[in-house]
């Protein structure tokens, strides 16, 4: 039996580089202006999985990602870096899922990949920063969780020893397998794409993507069936629709407010000496400093 590592990875809008055109005139977010990227800590997770794969004979790394059809990019990107394959969980019925409904769907997909030894994901995704899906998936799988992993100290078929990064220190813990690990950004960065894998898999597509291709891939796919990326829908997961999307999400968004700042009475200064000196004198005489 091979040693199976499942990596949970998410495609996210790059909220770290919100440019000026990312906000529309009415103050709402212009999603189209934000590039879709591989969630940074999920790349740390992929690296940890590939590292473990190199330590254990016959280990394989399988990517699971949930999102719209274009999220298949995450699977290709992972394969270019050394993953063995992946599945895209995609269905309109997932729309509106909060972390609880998401972890339910993901846990069903992980169960479909049983027997598995490790489930590894980033600590959190930059679009929500909740860090909830990892622990909630572990709970649904009834396996232990090790959060904020920074380094694998040792691993074999039965157990793994992990160094965790805490707020004010570190901790080394050992857990039997299977277990779920969430990886902290201080863990090693992901290795780059390999040219050989990029060439081999650049035509890997999901069924949905193939339908949109102008070129006919039929013959290529008969010769190279490994290029097919499988999509899993609600039906494939035998999921209870009531536990997905808005109906399966206990949290509701009551209100979204665009942040409109009321201009305070601000004193506008330049970098001229007299302005700065005046300010410092004022702060000193008001006993704010000094």
């Amino acid at each position: 039996m091979s040693f199976r590592i499942v990596v949970l990875a998410k495609q996210v809008p790059d909220t770290r580089n919100v440019g000026k055109d990312a906000m529309k005139a009415d103050g709402t977010v212009n999603r189209a202006a934000l590039p879709a990227i591989y969630n940074p800590e999920d790349l740390n997770a992929l690296e940890m999985a590939l590292h473990i794969k190199s330590k254990i004979k016959g280990a394989e790394v399988i990517i699971l990602t949930m999102g719209p059809p274009r999220a298949a990019e995450i699977i290709r990107e992972s394969i270019y870096r050394g993953a063995d394959g992946g599945y895209l969980i995609t269905d309109r019925k997932f729309a509106g899922s909060d972390t609880l409904a998401t972890s339910y769907a993901i846990s069903l997909a992980v169960k479909k990949l049983a027997p598995y030894h490790l489930v590894i994901s980033g600590r959190q995704a930059i679009d929500g920063d909740t860090a909830q899906v990892g622990p909630q998936t572990a709970e649904k799988l009834a396996i232990p969780q090790i959060t904020y992993a920074e380094e694998v100290e040792s691993v074999d078929e039965k157990q793994i020893t992990i160094k965790r990064r805490l707020e004010r220190g570190v901790e080394v813990v050992r857990t039997p397998l299977p277990a779920l690990i969430t990886v902290h950004s201080s863990a090693p960065e992901c290795r780059p794409r390999q040219a050989k894998l990029l060439m081999k898999f650049k035509h890997a597509r999901t069924v949905t993507e193939l339908q949109e291709e102008v070129r006919d891939y039929t013959e290529l796919y008969i010769k190279r069936p490994y290029l097919q990326i499988e999509e899993w829908t609600v039906a494939d997961l035998h999921a209870d629709v009531e536990m997905l999307g808005l109906s399966g999400s206990p949290t509701k968004v009551k209100k979204i407010e665009n942040v409109v700042l009321q201009q305070k009475e601000t004193v506008l200064l330049t970098d001229a000496d007299k302005d700065i000196e005046g300010l410092m004198k004022e702060l000193i005489s008001a006993h704010i400093i000094g």
Partner: peptide
Amino acid sequence: ATSVGRDLAPRVASALRCGLTAD
């Protein structure tokens, strides 16, 4: 919302199938 709370609260919320809002 600490290393402990952010590890524990989602696990509890999942087991009780309750809503949880972070940070």
